[in-house]
């Protein structure tokens, strides 16, 4: 039952394929989370209450239910609706992206709220039109403040991708599971290496974010 290098070697290409899917899902989900979160935060600032109240409710709901449940539910619903199996990768990536949008929206909001009152007053005093003020003054400052939090959400999202193995996304964990199910071995090697890969990818990013956070603080 000890460590077997041969098994590890056999697992390597599967893990690499899993990593490819993992990174792809992370990329798609992050883009969705970053874009949608910004749209939500801006809508929240400028739309009438008739829009922001339901939006707030939806975001609360998404934030307070598990990704796993959301993914399984959406995949099942879409599959029933299409009459044929939905793409696990795309379904998973979108669900995860929307889920994290509910967090990034908060990060953007905090960034916007952190803009000093004097900036808004200067905008008024110069008569800058709203859209221009957002593009040239407010968003650049808000994004700067939100960047560390957003970076941390991307890392958290990356680490949550394996949850999507539940709907058949063939990232690393799913690959190891598949191998172990067929060969009755490899779980130890597979999960160890997968864990190390997670660490190798996310730790430098986390360090970078911490550095950025410190630099932005002063």
């Amino acid at each position: 039952m000890g460590w077997n290098w041969e098994t590890a070697q056999e697992l390597w290409p599967l893990l690499m394929e899993g990593l490819r899917i993992l990174l792809l899902v992370t990329l798609i989900s992050s883009l969705i989370a970053l874009a949608l979160g910004l749209v939500v935060a801006l809508t929240d600032r400028s739309a009438p209450r008739a829009v922001t109240m339901p939006l707030f409710a939806v975001m609360e709901f998404i934030r307070n239910t598990p990704v796993l449940v959301q993914a399984v539910f959406v995949w099942t619903a879409v599959t029933m609706w299409l009459g044929t199996a939905a793409s696990p990768m795309w379904t998973g990536a979108i669900v995860l992206g929307v889920h994290y949008a509910s967090y990034t929206a908060e990060a953007y909001r905090a960034g916007i709220d952190g803009i000093p009152k004097g900036q808004w007053e200067a905008i008024t005093a110069l008569s800058l039109p709203k859209p221009r003020a957002w593009i040239a003054v407010l968003l650049p400052q808000a994004l700067r403040r939100s960047t560390p939090a957003l970076g941390n959400y991307v890392i958290a999202l990356f680490k949550e991708v394996p949850i999507l193995s539940a709907i058949g996304v063939t990232e690393m964990v799913r690959q190891v599971d598949g191998y172990a199910g067929l060969n009755y071995t490899g779980a130890l090697e597979g999960f160890t290496i997968a864990g190390l890969i997670f660490l190798v990818v996310s730790y430098p990013v986390a360090l970078l974010m911490r550095k950025l956070e410190k630099r932005l603080a002063n």
């Binding site: 004097g118 900036q119 200067a122 005093a125 110069l126 008569s127 800058l128 221009r132 040239a136 003054v137």
Partner: peptide, 27 residues
């Protein structure tokens, strides 16, 4: 009407020149 504030309220994300040209160009 123009106003100068106690706390200056320059736009920190823009260089000095663009702080000055931003409104003339866009307003």
């Amino acid at each position: 009407i123009g106003m100068v504030f106690q706390q200056f309220n320059l736009f920190p994300n823009m260089r000095v020149l663009r702080n000055i040209t931003e409104a003339p160009v866009h307003v």
